[in-house]
Design a protein around this nucleic acid. Structure first.
Lengths: 189, 189
DNA sequence: ATATTGCCTTGACATTTGTCACGATTTCAG
DNA sequence: CTGAAATCGTGACAAATGTCAAGGCAATAT
């Protein structure tokens, strides 16, 4: 399955076998079951993860310790708490698996070495950042502008497959509504 | 007032007069009154703006053409629609002044030249991106996790001065609530 | 200076959403 | 395979928020 990562990098760094091998050599594999924590808030985020298989949830707790989900990351995507990772400050967010997952991760030391030694890797980081940012902007505009029902439609259009793949509870926490409201509104489509 | 920009760059690029002068030479000044558009959705975003004085609003229209504000940018900060600017794709967002403003802007050609010629300028871009991203993440978590009243408190804590400086209408559209609810909840503090 | 425009607040009411409760079904672990 | 736990849909009611309307005040332009 490390081919997933290789292909992902080839698509972005170009087909330069030496460089690709050097980059890949810094990644280690991690296999996880469902509901295993990768990061707890307050900890410093040590790794950047590439999801080869499975699904991760990035979330925070509100005052009543309900979970609210900022991001859902599926295979062939990157996941980290970049702010904590970049500044080595405590994370405000939690990350955990919601499915059996196969991950490849790079730690900060390896990451920095790559940033210095492989100019194209800087571009990969910049792309991760730009992609994450674009995602966030979409999500904010979705939240501020749309009603609950419209958000559900938005999810179906923009992240097809997610609704049938994940629990209603998780989807609802991603949309910022209660499970019950989600269940009811779904029926109206 | 170009000193604002110079100081901002010195703080980030280091005190290298030659480089700073080269970078600054690519910026032009722009003075705007209140309520002037800098970018309309559908257009390609041509510039990155540095706000030396005044205040900008980044917003979208919902289905009923109400404005919903994704970001409010005050002096000593950068503003652009980075996704449109970076990919030269049509913008989903609008930008306009909400106060008399003094801006310095760099166009895409100048920006790219700086990215190639001045390595530290890449770092500035990366910092803008990281900062914008961190901002967005905060905002999403605020939105998903907090009630309207809590969002108002969040705004007072995290962006002090904004509430007294701007109209309730604008603040409400930034918080994703109606003017009336904003007015009522404010009273309960 | 004055007219105009926009802004803020408040009331009344409609709508949306949340909360609690319950039973039916599905999923999961031992 | 089987019991325990989680999930899902639904009803009843409470709470939060939006919408419409109106009046007073402040800012702005001519």
């Amino acid at each position: 399955m490390k081919n997933m990562l290789r292909q992902h990098l080839v698509d972005r760094l170009g087909d330069n076998t030496d460089k690709i091998d050097e980059v890949i050599s810094h990644f280690k594999i991690l296999r996880k079951k469902r509901n295993e924590m990768l990061l707890n808030q307050g900890e410093i985020c040590k790794n950047v993860y590439f999801v080869a298989r499975g699904c991760l949830q990035v979330f925070v707790y509100d005052a009543e310790s309900n979970e609210t989900t900022r991001d859902i990351v599926v295979e062939n995507n990157w996941c980290s708490e970049l702010i904590s990772f970049g500044n080595q400050t405590p994370s405000n967010e939690n990350i955990r698996t919601v499915e059996i997952s196969e991950l490849y991760y790079i730690d900060r030391q390896g990451f920095q070495k790559m940033m210095e030694n492989v100019p194209q890797f800087r571009n990969v980081y910049q792309q991760i950042l730009e992609y994450s940012y674009a995602n966030s902007v979409y999500r904010i505009n979705t939240f501020v502008a749309l009603s609950s029902l419209e958000r559900i439609k938005w999810l179906m259009d923009n992240r097809p497959g997610l609704m049938s793949r994940l629990s209603g509870k998780l989807i609802a926490s991603y949309l910022g509504i209660s499970q019950e409201t989600f269940s009811r509104l779904k029926g109206k489509l």
